[in-house]
Design a protein around this nucleic acid. Structure first.
Lengths: 143, 143
DNA sequence: AACATTTTTGCAACATAGTTTCAAATACAA
DNA sequence: TTGTATTTGAAACTATGTTGCAAAAATGTT
């Protein structure tokens, strides 16, 4: 666990590191990501911060994404989710090599940072820039 | 290539095989999938059939999916796309083990049926039912 | 600490997509 | 060909994505 002060500090450091101004909205949203430790959709976040403007949240997520703070966690559902980048991600240059797992029971999506996926043979003539690996099923807690 | 008669026959056979009534809408929509040979979003289909009700199309796609005729082709974009099942798919039991490729230039998504992906180690305690492998980049035609 | 500049926020307004209900139309089987 | 079950299309509503703009807030500078 992490104290409130530690959380506050971590949030500030992360925002600064990614060239983002320290605003109230951003601090709150980033805190949710740090506490929850799972991929979050827009509505997930709305439920976890007190009273936030829908459009502002929408733009906050985009700016986090643009600045390499979060990435899209494709999980095979209709909902777009975002997850904290582990490290090394930069503007316009996200580097992710992990799978995402979506639990159909609790509907949570988590990054499986320990599960690297093997390089598969790319079809001839195709230039592959980004690869996603998604697993759906039941997570350990919901068995 | 396939003649109109052959297409008509194929459509009928496929619908019957999947316990779907032979309606005008279904025949048209399925024809588009057979002709296009790529993953299609709702709007892709609307552009390729003459005048179709939005809600009916929405329900048609769901019924096709439920009856194992098409599957969701997750391609990492915001748009939900569907692609024809290759074979063997049944209600509630889709079996897909191929990757999807989304071209950022022509925005087409295709199934890479020849590209099987290796089984990766699943995290302990997780029950994996479905796996998706998605690649984004530039396809051979758009190089 | 106050100001100027730039960014961010919140609102209005609009576009698109997902979903349910229900009556009319259609498909199919007896 | 008729009866039954399914499908369709319209209305209505909800949710989500997006832009423009003025007010508010954040940051750098005096």
């Amino acid at each position: 666990m992490r104290t409130d002060i530690e959380l506050e500090t971590e949030v500030m450091t992360l925002l600064k590191k990614h060239d983002l101004r320290l605003t109230q909205v951003r601090k709150e949203v980033l805190s949710v990501f740090l506490i929850k430790e799972q991929a979050l959709s827009q509505s997930d976040i709305e439920e976890n911060v007190g009273q936030i403007d829908r459009i502002t949240l929408y733009r906050t997520l985009r700016s986090f994404e643009d600045n390499g703070l979060i990435h899209r966690a494709i999980d095979g559902t209709d909902k777009l989710r975002f997850a904290l980048c582990v490290d090394l991600c930069e503007k316009e240059n996200h580097k992710h090599n992990h799978a995402h797992f979506h639990c159909e029971k609790c509907t949570k999506t988590i990054c499986l940072n320990g599960v690297e996926f093997p390089k598969i043979i790319h079809p001839a003539g195709f230039k592959v820039k980004e690869t996603y690996y998604v697993m759906q099923g039941v997570c350990s807690k919901c068995q």
